[in-house]
Amino acid sequence: MPQEPMAATLGRAAAVGPFFSVRTHAGAPRDQGFLPLAELYREGDSPALRNRLETVATRLGTAERRVAASLVHQGLAGRLWSIAFAPAVLAGRVPDLGGDALWWHPERSTPDELWLPAPSPLPSASEEDLTDRLRAAVLQSHLVPLQQAISAVSPISPRVLWGNAASALVGTLRVLHDWCRRTGHREAAERAVALTASLLDDAPLRDCGTLDPAVPEFSRRSCCLYYRVPGGGLCGDCVLRRTGR
């Protein structure tokens, strides 16, 4: 029996919430101000990424570029995890996000900033292979080069950025896990926890924190720097909560 189109799978996953949504219709993304994320990575000191950091810094009222860099990174990491992770959990399929397939608009916010004009799946995976597919789609295609791109426009610790990536993954897990339990998808909820644990058990996320699968809940070993935003505070998984700072 033929599988449904990848666009239909992504559409079903979008029911979880806005962070899990991505445009999938055909069109001309560049004409509307989008650029391929892979192009942003190739640029080195990317003007689009630098402008995005300046915009976010202004909105947050911070003069610290590294704070804006961290929060831009964490937000984009969360979106990347969400659009790949939910189809993996709900349908056993991972979209191919490599190359120039996924487009980003630096001036738009969720859910309108990502566009996948020609969605296709990575090769069919067994349950055991889903972790490898997610690593390929998110970590290798995006988070590794994104870490390098962010570091090129703002001095920031790689430990902070990989902590962000791990925290964003668990944030994705928690939203999807709650949705699965509310909608009666208990096996999918269990699969989501298992996949997350497997992803966190390998480099570069292995030493970023500790997952409590029973909740699920995460304690990271770094800080995203949100507390340095005027009026900001500590995130629920922040290392500073446990150090008393």
Rank of each mutant, 00 (worst) to 15 (best):
L143E: 07
V175W: 01
Q148C: 01
H142E: 11
Y226I: 00
A203P: 14
L176K: 06
L90R: 13
E127W: 08
P2F: 08
V175L: 11
A8H: 12
L161P: 11
R12S: 11
L71H: 03
L53G: 04
A38E: 13
V229T: 08
T58F: 14
T55C: 14
S198G: 13
I156V: 10
F218L: 06
S167N: 15
R220C: 02
A28G: 04
P121Q: 07
W81M: 04
A77G: 02
P18Y: 02
L211I: 10
Q32T: 02
V138Q: 04
V160Y: 11
T55P: 05
L234P: 03
D201M: 00
P155W: 09
A214I: 12
R135Y: 10
L102G: 06
S219A: 15
C235F: 04
R220H: 07
A125C: 05
L134W: 04
P158I: 01
L90M: 14
L169F: 05
I156L: 11
W104R: 07
G44L: 09
Y41P: 00
I150W: 05
D202G: 03
R12T: 10
G11K: 15
P123Q: 04
G27I: 07
A189P: 08
G17A: 07
L37Y: 04
V94C: 04
S70L: 00
W104Y: 14
G236C: 07
E217W: 12
R30V: 05
Y227K: 06
A38Y: 08
G99T: 03
D201T: 00
E107K: 14
L53C: 10
D31G: 06
S141Y: 07
R93K: 05
L234E: 09
P230V: 06
E113P: 01
L195C: 09
V16N: 09
R23Q: 14
G33F: 09
D207T: 14
R66L: 03
L199C: 04
F19H: 00
I150Y: 04
A188G: 06
R186M: 11
R206I: 01
P123W: 09
A38L: 11
E39W: 14
L139R: 09
L173V: 06
E187C: 01
A189H: 08
W103R: 00
E217T: 05
A63G: 14
A8R: 15
A28V: 11
P106K: 09
R220Q: 12
G78D: 01
S157K: 11
A28K: 13
Q32F: 05
T210L: 14
E39V: 14
R241E: 07
L49K: 10
